[in-house]
Nucleic acid binder design. Structure first.
Lengths: 198, 198
DNA sequence: CACGTTCCGATACGAGCGCATCGGTAGGCT
DNA sequence: AGCCTACCGATGCGCTCGTATCGGAACGTG
């Protein structure tokens, strides 16, 4: 067999290159040639990793979604009180916001894919799956918080979960448009989550 | 002078065609040729109305923004209690949501332009201008409501305005992704606005 | 009434796109 | 050690894009 390369690693690197291009110049900047250049591989390599451009974009979409989930996990682990439900809740939602440069890039990628999801049902299904995971996590956190008394018992979990997700998305849009700074958006989010505590 | 056509009317018709194409298949579907076909004019006519494609897209962006404002005005006029501040507030915010087919189309156009605004500062400025107008309107409504006792006096107007806009945007995203129906989004919005009443 | 000006719609062009194809090359098997 | 296979990176091909250009039709004017 000829020289072997790690296919999964290459796919991840390409997906990362796609995200960087979309985050900098939008979806239309993610041409196969530009992606190859950004990932420092040849055009042929990109074509062998992904049968078609659409397949590449879907993988990149799942890639950025995984990054958000991963960032939530990391923020929880690094937080001063990893065991506190309120902390976990806040850190999870913060991971969805554009609070730092990395998050800002992901937010731009997120809205690009979300806009595309509005007209391509297959992409919308991918996004809904991501949101389903986030919603489930929030439900678990809220329920655990109510059981150990950290979350007010009168909070209606399902509707509160939806409201928190809606708030995070709305704030992300506001930050991207420059109507909120990352700091002010974070403050709004924290005011909301602290309102849930006992 | 040769045969004269109404330039402004033609520009509006072209902008409408751009919105229909973007609402159906996304920003990339708005090529000059497709726009010309949708507007039932020649490619040359589109080029003479707009010096460049970007100029056309900016005009279309302002066009859909004007439609939202116009819809808010129409909803207020048609509402059962045009004089009630609470009604005006609710109808204004409803105009920002994708509550009917026309609104759904506009919402898809909105998110397409918003995504582009995240990477093109010039477009972001246009969007910010639109939001500034909406925010000013909401501030006026809330203040008037407080003065005549229809809105709770403890509502902090500036932050509430931002919160309402953020909520409307977040709900729009959720509807576009299929995580909210137009009806459920409207219900969330109404619950929020009725909470502001005395 | 014919001319000339002015604007319209069709065509032409270079560039860049996604995708398909094809020698070259680097290792595993006997 | 040498062959042979499997994969890599470069090149080619239609196609469509945005933009520039050009002949022709339509009206005010002398």
């Amino acid at each position: 067999m000829p020289r072997q390369v790690d296919h999964d690693d290459r796919r991840r690197r390409i997906a990362q290159a796609v995200c960087e291009l979309i985050g900098r110049d939008g979806l239309e900047a993610a041409t196969l040639r530009e992606v190859a250049a950004q990932a420092e591989v040849s055009l042929g390599a990109v074509q062998r990793c992904f049968r078609t451009k659409e397949e590449m974009l879907v993988f990149a979409q799942e890639h950025v979604n995984r990054r958000v989930t991963e960032r939530a996990r990391a923020r929880i682990a690094e937080s001063p009180e990893p065991g506190s439900v309120a902390t976990m809740l806040e850190q999870t939602l913060t991971a969805m916001l554009a609070v730092d440069d990395e998050g800002l890039l992901d937010a731009r990628v997120w809205i690009a894919f979300t806009a595309q999801s509005a007209v391509v049902p297959a992409l919308a299904a991918v996004q809904r799956g991501h949101y389903a995971g986030l919603a489930e996590l929030l439900v678990v956190l809220l329920r655990a918080g109510q059981e150990n008394g950290q979350i007010r018992p009168d909070v209606e979990i399902e509707s509160e979960t939806d409201a928190l997700i809606t708030l995070a998305d709305g704030l992300t849009v506001q930050v991207l448009l420059g109507r909120h700074t990352p700091e002010s958006a974070l403050a709004v989010l924290q005011r909301r989550t602290t309102g849930l505590r006992t």
